[in-house]
């Protein structure tokens, strides 16, 4: 979706993904995982994907930039927005290896969902094999669905964990994450 939502946090900011981010997205996605969606394998394929994404409604893809120097350290998206039910999924969550962007990127995604898009509920699905990301969502205080869900990954059905955050739970998650984001930001300014 060709959106113009930008959010500034303490040390990181979210800005819309642009076609020229294709190489960045390929590089960041090839640096981690596994992800539910395999994604584009090269810059040309990624540019084509972004062109289609820009035409798609209800899909907000972001680059997380370190505010000190605008270094792009992460990616995240809110997509499959159901405007009537006021719910969506978030994902495409990638953080540059060694960067401290995960906490504030998640915080900004939730702020976008509940304070900008006025959603009531947000879910995310993570391959069960991606254990540290599953643990991250647990640690943030999201509710984990009691049973795994099955998702398609590289043409194979694999188990995934679904987490949910409702509007009522957002203040507690914000209260948990914001102090860490603030302290991290202060450290980044020292650097």
């Amino acid at each position: 979706m060709d959106h113009d939502i930008a959010l500034r946090g303490h040390g990181y900011a979210l800005r819309p993904v642009r076609p020229e981010d294709a190489a960045l997205i390929v590089a960041l996605r090839n640096d981690g995982g596994p992800y539910i969606n395999r994604g584009a394998q090269d810059e040309r394929e990624q540019r084509a994907w972004i062109s289609r994404y820009l035409e798609r409604e209800g899909d907000y893809y972001f680059v997380a930039e370190r505010m000190r120097d605008a270094r792009p350290d992460g990616l995240a998206a809110i997509y499959d927005v159901d405007a009537q039910a006021r719910r969506a999924e978030w994902g495409r969550f990638v953080v540059r290896h060694g960067a401290n962007a995960a906490v504030e990127t998640a915080l900004l995604v939730y702020r976008c969902a509940f304070e900008v898009l006025a959603l009531e509920s947000l879910v995310c699905r993570t391959l069960s094999a991606n254990a540290q990301v599953v643990a991250f969502h647990d640690s943030c205080g999201l509710a984990r669905a009691p049973a795994e869900v099955m998702v398609m990954h590289d043409g194979v059905t694999r188990p995934a964990v679904e987490h949910r955050l409702d509007r009522a739970g957002w203040p507690a998650v914000e209260a948990k994450l914001a102090p860490f984001a603030q302290r991290l930001a202060a450290r980044m300014q020292d650097g």
């Binding site: 995960a102 643990a135 991250f136 640690s139 860490f180 991290l184």
Partner: peptide, 11 residues
Amino acid sequence: CAAWDSLKHVE
């Protein structure tokens, strides 16, 4: 250690 996620690391 799967429990040592990005938030736990900062903590």
